[in-house]
Each structure stands twice: as structure tokens, then as C-alpha cells.
Amino acid sequence: MTQTEFLNIVMPFKDKVFRLAKRLLVSTEEAEDATQEVLMKLWSNQAKIEEYKNVEAFSMTMTKNYCFDKLKSKQAQNLKIVHTNYEDASTSLQKQVEAHDSLQWVAKIIESLPEQQKMVVQLRDIEEYDLDEIANMLEMNNTAVRVALSRARKTIREKLTITNNYGIK
């Protein structure tokens, strides 16, 4: 397989891999590294690519597993530097700006969801995959995906309602 052939296969879904990685790892740099890692793994296993029924779904599963490994090794570290650690108690200017930026709110709400729900929302509402495809990618069954999706959507709606009504009611 030549480089161009490989890129033709990979091109359509590399952004999706990146976005899923970013959803899980939050930081753009880390998501870029993860995407690169996943794609390089695919490249080094190129002989097997033809064997996979669905390279895209396989890559998404790989991304999920890779990000989980990353998250696990991060948690194993004693010192945890998460962006929530250096939150200012006083309402900073940035916070005020963010409060106006409602999209930022949605991002924050999704970020607060459990990992599985995050992934389901990402794959369904942003990448618009079939429920069956998602089940296949996340190695879950169809019903579990639906339940996770429903829970995530309800949580997002509830939290958005609260922020939306903040200061009104």
C-alpha cells in the first residue's frame, strides 16, 4: 500500500478520531498526539487493514482504548494538574466572558459527564453515527448505548435549563 492510498483511507475519519480524542483528553495537544499515535499504528499495521471489515470503526475503538490508557496513566500520577485546579474564586473577567459564551457552557457540561456518556454524545450528536455503529466502536450493546445517550442528553438539558434560568427565576 502506498502512502497516498493509506491517506485516502484515513482522510475521511481522521478528524473524527481527533475530535473523539479531544473529547476524552480535553487538551488539543494531547488529542493531536493521540490521533497521530492511532494513525501511525494503523500505518504500521497496514498489511492488516484489508482484513478489517470497517477501518473507521476499528480506528475509533483504538482511539477510545488509547485515550483510556492515557487517562489511566494520568490518574496514576500523584500530582494532578487539571485545569480545574487553578480556578479563581472571584469572578474573573474571563469567567464573565465565558458566562456569556453559551457554547462554552455546553462544552463544560459535556466535560463533566462520565467518560462513556461523553463518547456516546460525541459519536452520536457530533459525528452522527448509527447506534449500531457506536455500539460496535465502543464495544457495548445497542441498548446500553441508547441508555447512555438518553442519560447524557437529559443531563445536558437539565444543566442548560439551570444556567439559562440563572438570574431569572
Binding site: D15, L160, T163
Partner: peptide, 27 residues
């Protein structure tokens, strides 16, 4: 239904994010 607006807007906006890093592929 106003509160749903940012959610769907966020979903649509997020579809536009791209992976721009160059892949170091060597044949």
C-alpha cells in the same frame, strides 16, 4: 425551548474542528 439552542449550536460547531497536524509517514 431557548435552552436547547446552545447545545445544538455546539454540536454543529464541533463538527468543524479538524486535525491539522502533519503525519510523519515514511514509506
Amino acid at each position: 425551548l431557548e435552552m436547547y439552542k446552545p447545545m445544538f449550536a455546539y454540536f454543529l460547531a464541533n463538527q468543524q474542528e479538524h486535525f491539522t497536524k502533519q503525519l510523519p509517514i515514511k514509506t
